[in-house]
Amino acid sequence: MQTDTDIAALTIPETIFLWFQANLMNILGAFAVLVIGLLLAGFISASVSRALLKSERFDQTVARFLSNVVKYALWIVVLVTVLTQFGVETTSILAALSGVALAIGLALQGTLSNVASGVMILIQKPFKVGEAITVSGLTATVQNIGLFTTELKQFDGLFVMIPNSELWNQPIINYHRHPVRRFELIVGIAYGDSMEKAREQLLALAAEDERVLDEPAPLAFVASLDDSSVGIGLRVWCATGDYLALSWALTEAAKARFDAVGLSIPFPQRDVNLAGLQGAGLQGPVQLGAQAGKGAPASSE
């Protein structure tokens, strides 16, 4: 048995050899735990990734993120187990790691909030790439959904990047989530024109356009009684992809059809009583008008 004096007289290589000799079983056990633990962590994380990718609720980005979280968590467990093989007190190490994690979390609070919101967006899927949405007064098409930010493209071609936390905390209107949507057109006619005739003409326009769905059936109705006109409404349903083109076509066709059948779309008018002019021989209301464009009466105030 070597005494302390004999150990002190050993060289550094001899000391290392003696340490390895005394801790050979612990070293072998730690190595085995390390190899098996890393292989097991890789297998479990890959299995989690495959399981998440099979589910339609999880995006590929979320699947990779969650599988990496599982893998890194298992790596920490393996590291702590290896240190335990050498008799290292892991309680203080875990406490230190917890303190570091808390400090990093506080420093990256906004970033972590964006990550959490990004994960929820990718899981809940309130919108997908290629869909048009409105959020916080901004209407644009989704280009890319990341863990930190979402990239949008406005209809005028401008690029917009929004932090995910701002998207997740706001009401979102998705224009493409449902396969069909309703279009409503309101056209004003003169009070002297036939409301029934106007409704018939609007329904005829809807029947002539093959993009208008039969169910729900088109509906024409009196929408409002305005100051200068009677608002005749038309409600039709169409495929979401046809909405914009159909709205343009029906609006233009309604104006042309009303002109063809003698239904007028009046300009706003106001009757002004000039009380001070009654003594000069003017009686009753006087209609004031101005030319707006070529031969068209404009609004009078």
Results as ranks from 00 to 15, higher is better:
A290P: 00
A204F: 03
Q2C: 09
G29W: 12
R235I: 11
Y175W: 08
S67H: 02
Q201V: 13
E131Y: 03
E131Q: 11
A140I: 08
R199Y: 12
M195C: 06
G192T: 15
A190S: 14
Q170N: 14
L152I: 02
A101T: 14
T141A: 01
E131H: 02
I7S: 05
A253P: 01
L185N: 01
D227G: 08
I36Q: 04
K71F: 15
S113E: 04
G231S: 05
V187D: 04
V100S: 02
L288I: 10
D6I: 12
G241Q: 14
L66K: 06
T240Q: 07
L102Y: 08
A107D: 00
L18W: 09
I186F: 10
P218Y: 07
V88N: 01
V222N: 09
G157N: 00
R177I: 13
M161W: 14
I123L: 05
A275T: 13
V272S: 06
I104D: 09
W248V: 08
V142F: 08
L225H: 14
F155A: 09
V261W: 07
V115K: 06
L234C: 04
K255V: 14
A190H: 13
P285A: 13
Y72N: 08
F155Y: 12
L274A: 09
I121F: 02
A220T: 09
Q291E: 15
F86W: 05
W248K: 09
A32Y: 07
Y175S: 02
G279W: 15
P268I: 01
V88Q: 04
I172T: 11
L94N: 13
I12S: 10
V142Y: 06
E210K: 15
G231E: 12
R181L: 07
T3K: 05
A223I: 11
T149C: 02
L213D: 04
W168Q: 05
F267I: 12
P179I: 11
K125M: 07
E301H: 04
Q278S: 10
L74S: 03
H178Y: 15
K197L: 14
T111P: 00
P163L: 09
D209I: 05
T150C: 00
A204Q: 13
G137I: 06
K255W: 11
W75G: 10
A275R: 11
E14A: 08
N23C: 03
A22W: 15
P216N: 04
V80G: 02
S55R: 07
S299F: 13
K255C: 11
N144T: 08
A32C: 06
Y72A: 03
N26L: 04
A249S: 10
G118N: 04
G188R: 00
